[in-house]
Write a protein that binds this DNA or RNA. Structure first.
Lengths: 251, 251
DNA sequence: CGAACGTTTGAGATGACTCAAGCGTTGTGG
DNA sequence: CCACAACGCTTGAGTCATCTCAAACGTTCG
């Protein structure tokens, strides 16, 4: 089931079996993508959206000097550019960060779904609004946290999302991104991210090495980044397990 | 017509007459609110959404030390917390900045609309995704622009949105907010915002005084903030008029 | 007239940046 | 199989943007 992780553990909106089956039928193809592949550019008219099955993807905006700001990072189960369906053109680029497997869903199929299954349509709407909620948490991060806080907040967030996707045990997970990526996520330079990672390592909060993240003190890391997972709209049972009862093995 | 400005001039999704009438019927009451009134708090279960008719509103997240980051600013015509309909609870607070007039729309009415008028439902979805697009522009602003650029970008954005709402002529508009508000929008301190405003004044780009904004060089201000209005999804005709043919009087 | 609020300015501290160089690992072609 | 290129990580030294703390000023309103 390609849609297995989509909206999994999301508060009150998990998919019914019929809805999941309908979504599966809407998939036109499944692709394997190389790392660092751009799949959509700002302003292009799009006719399909992309459900991420495996790997990490990003959405970003480049400034006129080539500096890049990531506006979203996606993990398996995320419907990466579902918002392209109502918007038709995007305001940013979309690319893979690691190698990835994606399912392509034509907008014509989504069109049919909105007419025939309004409850599912509402859940698709909900999914795009979680992305918006994450944007807001990122705004808080960039606007009000210092460098260490920003990195701590991001790592705590991605850990929570990977736990929800069954790809982190709450303490260790694979995340195939570089310190330079982390800089583009946190609005910092890669040099400074390196110093931040050293500090997190020396404080024994978190270790990031060769794209493997190990969180030594989850509560302390979350506290340092003022991370409160409620904006992720994860179901309470899962949410509880985040702090005390990790239930999944490392990917 | 309370919904007059909603989705006005938005690329390809202006409301049909029947849709507008349906939305008008969905309004349960119209309220006048004092400045600095909080109308929704993070985590509360909400059963209605708010269409802003007059005034300026904000959405914000406070940190544990009381520092505040605004995640959105709303102008007349914005469906401020429409996303509360699919989400049910919000991840942030919502408040008026100035005195405001709002129309209240019960979620039960929106529920009916999604079942009976899928095309209108899609436009409501679209409206929430423009908010998300603006979030992303703000992420770029906070992550990659310096203090002067951030303020310039915000002022250029709000000018474009007010032109679209018919509340700015492209050069002058009323915006009843303080420099401290601007600081909470741009992730700066109010002291530094003050120095930035002086610089913009000395460079003859823009003057901000007693909540009246005068943009002396719109193109130069936009350039300083790397502002490109395409993320606002404003109809091309309006968009063109932004730079060359202002068509509306000052509010 | 005084209180409250927003704006303005100064001086000094500091967090993050820039520039520059060196190091370690990985993959590849001679 | 070695050599080297490419890439990412690490560290140092100096600079600069923004912050903090503090005080004064102007305006509005009761």
């Amino acid at each position: 089931m390609f849609t297995e992780r989509f909206l999994r553990d999301k508060r009150g909106v998990s998919l019914e079996l019929a809805e999941r089956q309908r979504l599966e039928r809407a998939i036109s193809e499944v692709l394997t993508l190389e790392p660092r592949t751009t799949i959509a550019r700002a302003g292009e008219r799009l006719h399909q959206s992309t459900l991420l099955i495996e790997g990490i993807m990003s959405r970003y905006i480049d400034d006129r000097n080539g500096l890049r700001q990531l506006v979203a990072v996606h993990v398996p189960g995320d419907f990466v550019d579902l918002h392209a369906f109502p918007l038709q053109t995007l305001d940013h680029d979309v690319a893979t960060m690691t190698a990835a497997t994606v399912a392509i869903v034509p907008h014509a199929e989504l069109e049919t779904i909105t007419l025939e299954m309004p409850a599912l349509a509402r859940k698709l709407w909900f999914a795009t609004l979680i992305d918006a909620s994450i944007h807001r948490a990122w705004l808080f991060r960039l606007g009000r946290l210092d460098a260490v806080g920003r990195v701590a907040h991001f790592l705590a967030e991605i850990n929570a999302r990977l736990v929800s996707a069954g790809l982190s045990d709450g303490r260790r997970f694979a995340l195939g991104i570089t310190q330079a990526d982390l800089a583009e996520i946190c609005g910092l330079t890669n040099v400074h991210v390196n110093r931040v990672m050293r500090q997190l390592r020396e404080e024994r909060l978190c270790v990031f090495r060769s794209s493997l993240v190990e969180i030594l003190k989850p509560e302390a890391l979350a506290a340092r980044g003022q991370f409160d997972p409620s904006y992720l709209y994860i179901d309470d049972r899962t949410h509880a397990s985040l702090s005390s009862h990790p239930r999944s093995a490392l990917s």
